[in-house]
Structures are given as C-alpha cells and as structure tokens.
Design a protein around this nucleic acid. Structure first.
Lengths: 106, 106
DNA sequence: AAAACGTTTGGTTGTTTTACCAAATAAGAA
DNA sequence: TTCTTATTTGGTAAAACAACCAAACGTTTT
C-alpha cells in the first residue's frame, strides 16, 4: 500500500467513523428528510446542546453535512445524500448476525 | 426514539464504526476478492500479528466477516459483501469535501 | 512426544473519544 | 444598548480504543 492508497483508505475510514456513532447516525438519518436546525435535533434526543453541536461538527468535518446560518439558527443538511443508501445493507449485516438482532428489524 | 429504534441505530452505528478504521476498512476491501488467511493480511500491512487479529475480531463481532479454521490457518471472508458497494458514495463525500482530498482519487 | 507454525488472548500504556458544564459568541428582540 | 435565544468553544474527567509484547492454544510436522 503506497502513500496515496493509504491516505485514501484513511479518508474513507474517517467518513465511516463519523457515521459510526449512534447519535451521529441518527442525525444523518434525520437530515434525510431535509435540513434541520440544531435545536430541532436537540429536541428529539436526550443529549446536551453542546454534545449535539460537537457531533454535528464531526459530521461536518467528515464532509457528511453542511451548515448554513440563517438568523439565530444554524441549519444542517446532508451534503452527499447517497450515504443513507447503504442502510439496507447495514441492516442486512445485522440481520445476518445474531438472532437477537433480527428482532430489531421487525 | 423508543427503545427498539435506539437499539437498531446503535447496531447500525456499530457496523459503521467497525469499518471506520483504516486497517479494518482496508482488510474488508482485501476480502472483496475472496477469503484470505490472517497471515496473508499481516503480510501486506505494517502491523503486528496480534493487532491484525484483534481488528479482525472487531469486524467479526460486528457481523462484517466470518472466519473458518482450516488446518493451521484461519480464513476470513466477507459475510455480507454489499458493504463494499458504498465505497463510491464515500469517495463522493471525500471528493465533495476539500480540494486537497480530490487528489486522492486521481 | 517435542517442536514449529498460525492465531488468539491478556496485560500495559498512551491516545482518542465522549459527555457534561460553564463561558463565549453572534444575531434578533425589547 | 441591554436582554434573550441559538449555537459553539474550552475544560475536565471517565470510558473506550489502539498498538505492542509476551504468553497461551490448537494443529500440524518431525
């Protein structure tokens, strides 16, 4: 593996890692329906405002979302919506894994 | 978000997290061509045998790979190959992100 | 049975991540 | 201008992760 390949795999892993946290994945899924302000996301999750903000900044630096300030609020939306297309496959992984997990799909 | 939804998003995040490490992502990509034994993976990467083994066990517990012992060797293969289908999208995220990253694709 | 091989496991240490709190900032309302 | 409101930033402590080494394990080979 040369330096360029290494840098590429690191960059890709970084995107997956950004999505690899329940709160961040949930947020990305929320944004599938369209942009949301931070306050809307905070409302629907049991977490501190600052925690949510930090998670969003991780998604942002990974290139998953972009933000736009309008008035007092900051709106986030998916930058590259295709990232949610692989959820069915992820669910297939879970399905294939353990009996206890299969229940999650029902 | 109820308990079941929460458990599902956690399970999905766990799969993404497993792939969210350069070494593990690289391994998963290697396995796209077919099964490999641990030694073959170790050979092609600059890491300790035990480190590789631990990464593989993380991929295994996430449901990404399965292993099979044959003789002295343990062979790993992708359990649900579709997980590599989303690499083009991940690359699109990288493309869309920063000028410096675009070079990685060339 | 002993030695060698391929792999996993346990332990340790340093690094990273996470969550919360408090303080700072920026914009709109009073 | 002062006062909220919405969000980010900085700090800190606890938990999780990663890499290496050494030891243990299960198979084959001798």
């Amino acid at each position: 593996m040369n330096a360029k390949e290494k840098a590429l795999v690191e960059a890709k892993a970084n995107v997956l890692k950004a999505l690899g946290h329940p709160t961040r994945l949930w947020m990305a899924e929320q944004l599938a329906d369209g942009e949301k302000c931070v306050c809307e996301l905070v409302e629907n999750i049991d977490a501190d405002f600052s925690t949510v903000s930090k998670h969003l900044s991780i998604l942002k630096q990974a290139g998953v979302v972009i933000d736009e300030k309008r008035g007092k609020q900051v709106y986030y939306r998916l930058k590259v919506p295709c990232i949610l297309q692989f959820m069915p496959c992820i669910e297939a992984v879970i399905q294939a894994t353990a009996q206890t997990h299969i229940d999650l799909m029902k």
